[in-house]
Amino acid sequence: MTDLSAHSDLEHGGHEIHYDPEGCKIGFWLFLFTEVFLFGMLFIAFGVYLTGYKADFQASSAMLDVKMGGINTLVLLTSSLTMALAIRAVQVDKKGQSLFLMLVTIGFAVVFCVIKYFEWTHKFHTGIHLGSAETFGVPSVLTDMPRGQQLYFGLYYVMTGFHAFHVLVGSILIMVAMYYVANGKVNKDRITLIENAGLFWHLVDLVWIYLFPLFYLIK
């Protein structure tokens, strides 16, 4: 009588696992906040060094390809739209449409990673890397650059790398959501899993919205 959770389990038929959409959602938001702090601390580091080495940061920023970054911004924003629409499709009970939209979202994620790959390898071939000549074909010129530029590219690789890793994890989450939407376990009455996958995907987008102008457009 005093145990409320046991009571509500009985209401749901006793043996059925208790489904708590609100709890799932709040829990996932709390996880997202830890992600905000993870990237947030890197942004603070970026901000502090930007104040300290303004000229070096601007010179480094001019070395990035705005076109590549710009296209990747469009790709990520559009993928956020398709993901939001995929969730809406489940809300209105359109399973096929939702699966298609999630597939498109993953397609955009692949495009993003391919562009990122070309950006990084291009930088490696011009000698901006921390490895040896044997690994990347050319000796590192980064160690001879001014300290501010070393810091800039260090942060560039760490932050865009971390972000790309999140794109990868987000794609896996969307694939999991596709699996459960396909077999009907996620439907308009049990939507939390795809909603949370979507929230993660939008967070990846949010991080990029700050990353792009701060790295590419400060010259």
């Binding site: 956020s80 979507g198 939008h202 949010l206 700050y210």
Partner: peptide
Amino acid sequence: KVTLVLLYFM
């Protein structure tokens, strides 16, 4: 932009 994503997409 972030506010828009939070309010509508999220």
